[in-house]
């Protein structure tokens, strides 16, 4: 090997978070209705609207239906969401009339802990509920979003602390204990379609519903993902590499991020 100047590697051209957000945005399409949580899901959904999916309908739990923010909202109750929405409804209405009957195609969620069946914990870390090691914010809209949206996309940074063998608390159900459990529990939506992380993409196995690594982001290796997973990771036989961000995606994401007045998570 020559000792000449190394060309920049792909991983240096964008951050892992940017790749994750862009990969998530690509899952949303014009015409979809999407129930958006704040933080990474909101960034990805707004990126989708600003790039390939201008007709994407964003629904926030504050009651803003069809919000079209021109800057990234800092909270789900940001005034820009109400100002640009097709309709602003009450909180009981958004859950009872819009989410519960199955009118919303995609639920877009984050997680503090996630297991191999994409069940989510956002409640407590530690062995005891009454005296937890870390008290997390709790459920918010997530249990019913996970239950009632047509399908769910999860976006979460992947570490061993996050991707755990056993959740400390089940706040929102992915596939429960495995294949057939959603039906048994009476959950109407089809559940998580995809978990998008800063390392790659996991999708449920069609038979077992166990999360399986299907895509690596450019520059990442299977071992990177294994090391960030708290259970023996299943890897797809047809593992592929995520398309790198386009210049347009990156530029749009960066200009969106620049509109945010506060910090995220």
């Amino acid at each position: 090997m020559s000792a000449s100047v190394q060309p920049p590697t792909l991983a240096q051209e964008w951050s892992a978070d940017e790749m994750m957000t862009i990969a998530a945005a690509r899952q949303l399409h014009a015409g979809d209705t999407c129930f958006v949580g704040i933080g990474l899901p909101s960034t990805a959904a707004n990126l989708a609207r600003a790039t390939h999916a201008q007709g994407l309908v964003l629904i926030y739990e504050s009651g803003c239906i069809g919000a079209k923010p021109t800057r990234l909202p800092l909270s789900i109750g940001d005034g820009v969401l109400a100002d640009t929405a097709d309709a602003v409804v009450s909180v009981p209405e958004v859950f009872n009339y819009w989410l519960q009957p199955g009118r919303i195609d995609i639920g877009f969620l984050g997680a503090a802990q996630l297991d191999r069946f994409a069940n989510i914990n956002t409640t407590v870390i530690g062995d005891t509920y009454d005296r937890p090691r870390v008290r997390l914010p709790g459920a918010g809209g997530a249990p019913e979003i996970a239950a009632s949206c047509g399908e769910v996309v999860v976006i979460v940074r992947q570490t061993k602390r996050t991707f755990v063998e056993t959740l400390d608390f089940v706040t929102s159900v992915g596939f429960g204990t495995g294949a057939g459990d959603r039906e048994r529990l009476g959950l109407r939506g089809s559940g998580p379609r995809m978990v998008i992380t800063d390392l790659g993409i996991l999708q449920p196995d069609p038979q077992t519903c166990e999360l399986t690594l299907t895509h690596l982001h450019p520059g990442k290796a299977v071992d990177d993902v294994r090391e960030a997973t708290g259970w023996p990771l299943a890897v797809s036989a047809s593992l592929s590499t995520t398309e790198p961000p386009t210049d347009h995606e990156l530029a749009t994401l960066r200009s969106l991020e620049a509109t945010k007045s506060g910090t995220d998570s």
């Binding site: 519960q100 459920a139 239950a147 009632s148 706040t171 109407r188």
Partner: peptide
């Protein structure tokens, strides 16, 4: 409501 099913919330 149609909610909470399968979660640990009803237990707590």
């Amino acid at each position: 409501l149609r909610g909470y099913s399968g979660t640990d919330l009803p237990e707590r």
